[in-house]
Design a binder for these strands. Structure first.
Lengths: 113, 113
DNA sequence: TAAACAAATCATAATATGATGATATGTTAA
DNA sequence: TTAACATATCATCATATTATGATTTGTTTA
């Protein structure tokens, strides 16, 4: 099997995964697994600042991972597709496997010394 | 459904996805879908420099997404787990859905103006 | 052991990303 | 229309990430 994807295609795909690749965005996605939440609810669920939450929500929204719907003075956010949850679950599965070395990876967010 | 994950757990999970979140690393992973390759083969398959390839391979290796095996003067790299390919496939599925807005996302690797 | 090739590492510079505080916009209800 | 609250945006700074060229380490074969 040989799969060839052009440069543009790879960038597109990496953008999708990068949506999941930040702790704060991932916190937001996890918080939405239970159903739609307002921004204020996401703020209190994640402990992030309002501004930071809004910035990351924009990223997630632009990348199509979450959907926003205004209701009165609230904006409800939700996962845009079941497969977003599926991807999270598959990540869980990979991580829970002892063979996966992510625990030892010190490349990101880890004190190197 | 309510899922609570501590800060450490979220960082761990985001590290996993960040492995997929770079165009060059993703190119490497795609090149390995067809089976194990040596570093030199990956270099020519992806067009990346040897040094850059090696750097990203280290990242992927430390995060447990690929496995390395020395054979003579070559080091063969391969996907460490079928679920790595599954994750790529799930990403494909999400992307192929018109509802997904990744195409419009200009946050990364896109000329804004 | 020396040459030739494969792969990894290192220091550095350029760039991308993320967090913050201040501010602006939008919505409801008094 | 004003006050109060919800959300988004902006400019800026600190930091993380990436790519590069030079160098080093490791392996095989002559």
């Amino acid at each position: 099997m040989q799969i060839v994807i052009n440069v543009e295609g790879v960038q597109l795909r990496s953008k999708l995964f990068r949506g999941f690749g930040d702790p704060n965005r991932l916190s937001i996605l996890y918080s939405l697994l239970g159903g739609p939440l307002t921004v204020t609810e996401i703020v209190s669920a994640t402990g992030m600042s309002q501004s930071n939450t809004s910035n990351h929500l924009r990223c997630l929204r632009e990348c199509g991972l979450v959907a926003a719907e205004q209701q009165g003075k609230y904006v409800y956010y939700s996962l845009s597709d079941d497969r977003v949850g599926d991807l999270l679950a598959l990540g869980e599965s990979l991580l829970s496997d002892a063979a996966c070395g992510v625990y030892q990876c010190t490349r990101y967010y880890a004190s190197e010394e």
